[in-house]
């Protein structure tokens, strides 16, 4: 009997949680990165199938990008990116987890509002802290989220051979764009 009551309470709490949990998600977010050096071949790639989930009850956010999903203009560059630098067969994904620290659903509107994000980013088997600004715009039942930050390959134990190091910038500019739909 007592067990049954506990079970019921747990179930009830779970239901309440479900109602309160406002989730916005996408499977087709876009991440671009660029590490070009002037007067050399552009080093730029785009992934348009990045997953992301934002919980608007707590401001928690998670995003996952598959390394193989980054497409380059030059096929050989894409091959080197996967095989030599990112070792995507061994480390197939990049993950961002954390929360929008000053999140307040009341501040969301159809004009862009800036928030602060604090969390971690895991690439190539290395997890580093990540702090950045994010822009949120609420458009009906969709939410647009965008951000941009700089990463250094060295921080993620990604070695770039000296022969090409002058053709690849030390600082990689990453831009992310998500159109999140209410779940």
């Amino acid at each position: 009997m007592k067990n049954n009551i506990t079970y019921l309470i747990v179930l009830l709490l779970l239901c309440v949680g479900q109602v309160n949990a406002q989730k916005y998600a996408t499977k087709s977010g876009v991440i671009d990165f660029e590490a070009s050096v002037p007067s050399f071949e552009e080093v730029k790639a785009k992934n348009s199938s990045v997953s992301a989930i934002l919980n608007t009850a707590t401001g928690e956010f998670a995003s996952l990008a598959l390394i193989q999903g980054f497409r380059f203009k030059v096929a050989l560059m894409e091959e080197h990116f996967n095989e030599n630098y990112m070792e995507s067969a061994q480390y197939p994904k990049a993950i961002v987890k954390g929360s929008i620290t000053d999140f307040d659903a009341g501040r969301l509107s159809d004009t862009t509002t800036e928030f602060n994000f604090k969390g971690t980013i895991a690439i190539h088997g290395v997890t580093q802290p990540l702090e950045t600004k994010v822009n949120l715009t609420k458009l009906g039942d969709q939410m647009e989220m965008s951000t941009s930050f700089i990463l250094k390959p060295g921080d993620f134990d990604i070695k770039i051979p000296s022969i090409v190091s002058n053709k690849i910038a030390d600082e990689v500019t990453v831009t992310a764009m998500y159109t999140l739909s209410q779940k």
Partner: peptide, 16 residues
């Protein structure tokens, strides 16, 4: 399509 990996967040396989 080409299989680019497994997405733990949604528990789906992705093709491009």
């Amino acid at each position: 399509g080409r299989c680019i990996g497994y997405d733990d967040l949604f528990e789906i396989v992705k093709l491009d």
